[in-house]
Amino acid sequence: MERTLVLLKPDCVERRLIGRILGRFEDKGLNIIAMKLIRITPDLAKQHYAEHVSKPFYPGLESFITAAPVVALVLEGLEAISVVRGILGATSGLKAEAGTIRGDFSSSRQMNLVHASDGPEAAKREIELYFQPEEVLDYKPTLTPWMRADDE
């Protein structure tokens, strides 16, 4: 099983798309093992986007991500990182395929609704930024045997 951090960004929350987006992940068989509504502080934004802090676009990114609440969640499943990124579509909603979250709900390069970890190291680091170990629940939903084979 693989875990990934997902943030439903301020534009997603403000547009009241939380339930529709969560449904996409659940429909795919991913398990939500941690979730909370939070306000990202400028300090947390700097930690999360550390590689971008010195870039010219960073002030706008920080202003956006701290402007309204976000829903932070940890998803778990087979190949969760690549599966989630596929569900999201291309970073720019203008280039994302129809049927993906960004392709269906975003028409912007910047307002792209959802952040997802881009690899296992990033997922581990990002999950630790947003959740204490006791907030991530290890459980197996009763429908799991109907979603994938025992040997997967």
Rank of each mutant, 00 (worst) to 15 (best):
M1Y: 14
R3N: 05
V6Q: 06
L7K: 10
L8H: 06
K9Q: 05
P10Q: 07
P10K: 02
V13P: 04
V13T: 03
E14L: 04
R15V: 00
R15H: 06
R16E: 01
R16V: 03
L17A: 02
G19I: 06
G19Y: 07
R20Q: 14
R20S: 09
I21V: 15
G23M: 08
G23A: 10
G23K: 07
R24E: 04
F25Q: 01
E26V: 08
D27K: 11
D27F: 11
G29Y: 08
G29E: 03
L30T: 03
I32T: 11
I32K: 07
I32H: 09
A34K: 01
K36W: 06
L37I: 10
L37D: 01
I38S: 07
R39G: 03
I40E: 03
I40Q: 02
T41C: 01
L44F: 05
Y49D: 04
Y49L: 05
E51L: 12
E51G: 00
V53M: 01
V53H: 03
F57K: 03
F57H: 04
P59L: 12
G60T: 04
G60V: 07
G60S: 08
S63A: 15
S63K: 15
F64D: 10
T66M: 02
V70K: 06
V70Y: 10
V70A: 08
V70L: 05
L73F: 04
L73Q: 00
E76K: 14
G77I: 10
L78H: 13
L78T: 13
E79F: 14
I81V: 12
S82C: 08
V83T: 08
V83P: 02
R85Q: 07
G86I: 12
I87Q: 02
L88A: 03
A90R: 14
S92K: 13
S92F: 05
L94H: 09
L94N: 12
L94Y: 00
A96F: 03
A96V: 02
E97P: 00
A98V: 12
G99L: 13
G99S: 06
T100E: 07
R102K: 03
R102Y: 02
G103P: 03
G103M: 09
G103A: 05
G103C: 05
F105A: 01
F105K: 00
S106G: 01
S108A: 08
R109F: 07
R109M: 13
Q110L: 13
M111Y: 15
M111D: 10
M111S: 11
N112I: 01
L113V: 06
V114I: 09
H115T: 07
A116V: 05
A116D: 07
S117A: 08
S117W: 05
D118L: 11
P120R: 15
R125I: 14
E126Y: 12
E126T: 08
E126M: 12
I127A: 02
I127D: 00
I127W: 14
E128Q: 13
L129R: 02
L129H: 03
L129P: 01
Y130T: 08
F131W: 09
F131I: 09
P133H: 12
E134P: 00
E134H: 15
E134Y: 14
E135R: 14
E135A: 12
E135W: 13
E135H: 12
E135D: 06
V136D: 09
V136Y: 12
D138P: 00
D138G: 00
Y139C: 05
K140F: 09
K140M: 12
L143H: 13
T144N: 11
P145C: 10
M147W: 15
A149I: 09
D150F: 14
D151F: 15
